[in-house]
Amino acid sequence: MLSPAEWEVIGLSLRVSLVAMAATLPLAYALAWLLARRRFPGKVLLDALVHLPLVIPPVVTGWLLLLAFGRNGPVGALLDRAFGLSLAFHWTGAALAAGVMALPLMVRAMRLSIEAVDRRLVAAARTLGASRWRAFRTITLPLSLPGILAGLVLGFARSVGEFGATITFAANIPGETRTLPLAIYTLLQTPGGEAAVTRLALIAVLLSLAALMASEWLVRRAAGRQAHVV
């Protein structure tokens, strides 16, 4: 039903999005925790910075990534020298763009769920001999799990759909950075590509729906396990 090239596009999209999620998850949760639980100078600025990719044009985000992570950018040059790693025009660059674009959605979902964890429970854990770290690990983290899952799925859906920042920063290289949306866009420019567009569009919709339903199921299961009263 699908051509090898189309399978390649789907495989690449999944790889880019999964790697983006795995790499972004710890950062997103740490930021969510900081914004939910801590007061520090520059908090408003950090909050704004995290949300930036949500409000500025994705093309601009891609361009900023190019400035920072391109071969001549400060971070890009450093990575190149230290690890021989180049992100621009590479599938890892597509993952970076997807992760950056997904970050605000992930932080928002996780922050809400951390704020919903009763701090009095954390205090109780401390009086029972738990260090800050153990109280976090055994109370805050498991109780905010539904938000982590929701954030991951939202972020994954956003990653699979990422277009503007990816094409700007990682370009549209077949087999390397041509993810689902880029492939659909390319096919739309090609005479006779309509059938393939339909197939890939359908796949994109199915992927997002599957992610959404998986998250609903996971969140419901987590909520059922920890029905919250006392």
């Binding site: 009095r120 429970l121 205090a123 109780a124 009086t127 498991p142 109780l143 920890q226 919250h228 006392v230």
Partner: peptide
């Protein structure tokens, strides 16, 4: 050994 008025049992 703090027995809180609102108990604070861990719900999970």
């Amino acid at each position: 050994g703090y027995v809180f008025q609102d108990m604070r049992l861990f719900p999970h």
